Amino acid sequence: MNKTIWNGLLVAMAISWSGLVFSGQAGEQESSDQALSQTTSATETADEKQLPSGIGWRLVRSLEMGKSGKFVHMVLVDKDRQMDKTVYSAAITKLCSKEPEFCRIRFWIQEYFIPEKLTPTAEQLKAQKADHLFNRAGSIHRTLWSCSVDHDRSQCVEW
């Protein structure tokens, strides 16, 4: 009978010990998950700080034209703000204010259509909402609007 009690105590201790070990691992896992979450949040915050954005718009990428040091900025405009030209103007001001010679910004409302290369496909071009170009050397400073943004047919472009 003493042997039975002894075996029972050993089993109980083994169960208690394994529960203690696994609960410690769960705590370590939770700590690891929290650390990963904080690292991910910090990375996302750093990425957000690297790419300018504003109310109603966000810079998705900037592509260099060859090795010229000149960039074409690809901007996503909130779909519900696509007809608000002040959103486009705010992006133009933010992205072009420090560019004394050249600035080009292309705007879309669906991130899917934003090109990863300088030259958009026909489908990407058709989905484009606006195109701003400032080129001091060519004396160009203009913004073209898609007809879905500016319904005045004399002021808009069908790409």
Results as ranks from 00 to 15, higher is better:
120 P>H: 07
47 D>L: 15
45 T>E: 04
1 M>W: 14
21 V>A: 01
52 P>L: 09
120 P>F: 03
47 D>K: 15
70 K>V: 00
97 S>E: 15
122 A>Q: 14
145 W>D: 02
148 S>M: 00
74 M>A: 07
146 S>C: 01
45 T>N: 08
132 H>E: 09
83 M>H: 00
29 Q>N: 04
66 G>V: 05
110 Q>H: 05
117 K>W: 10
17 W>C: 15
34 Q>E: 14
24 G>A: 06
81 R>I: 00
80 D>C: 02
65 M>Y: 11
141 H>Y: 05
124 Q>F: 02
125 L>Q: 14
121 T>M: 05
155 Q>F: 07
143 T>N: 02
159 W>K: 03
95 L>D: 10
99 E>C: 03
10 L>C: 14
136 R>T: 01
88 Y>K: 01
125 L>M: 09
4 T>D: 10
41 S>W: 12
77 V>I: 10
106 R>E: 08
3 K>P: 11
133 L>K: 08
100 P>T: 00
82 Q>G: 05
93 T>E: 15
85 K>D: 06
136 R>C: 03
1 M>R: 15
17 W>M: 04
23 S>E: 07
32 S>A: 11
54 G>I: 03
47 D>H: 12
48 E>F: 09
14 A>F: 12
157 V>R: 06
158 E>G: 02
85 K>Y: 11
29 Q>W: 06
108 W>D: 08
20 L>F: 01
60 V>T: 09
135 N>A: 13
133 L>W: 06
24 G>D: 13
128 Q>K: 05
39 T>D: 15
40 T>C: 06
34 Q>D: 15
2 N>C: 10
109 I>C: 05
84 D>W: 00
89 S>R: 12
84 D>Y: 04
96 C>W: 09
139 S>E: 14
110 Q>P: 03
95 L>E: 15
96 C>M: 11
154 S>D: 08
59 L>F: 03
43 T>V: 07
39 T>N: 12
45 T>S: 09
147 C>T: 12
51 L>V: 09
73 H>T: 12
46 A>H: 08
84 D>V: 05
108 W>S: 03
117 K>V: 07
143 T>A: 01
59 L>Y: 04
65 M>G: 04
114 I>Q: 03
85 K>F: 01
136 R>W: 11
42 A>V: 10
83 M>I: 14
96 C>N: 05
110 Q>M: 11
109 I>Q: 11
132 H>R: 04
34 Q>I: 13
97 S>G: 03
18 S>W: 10
93 T>S: 14
23 S>T: 13
111 E>F: 00
38 Q>C: 06
28 E>Q: 01
62 S>D: 13
69 G>L: 01
77 V>D: 01
114 I>S: 02
157 V>Y: 02
131 D>A: 07
12 A>L: 13
126 K>E: 04
65 M>D: 10
61 R>A: 08
124 Q>E: 08
112 Y>D: 08
72 V>R: 01
87 V>L: 04
102 F>W: 10
40 T>S: 14
81 R>M: 15
1 M>D: 13
24 G>E: 11
84 D>T: 00
124 Q>K: 09
66 G>M: 02
148 S>Q: 00
48 E>I: 09
26 A>K: 11
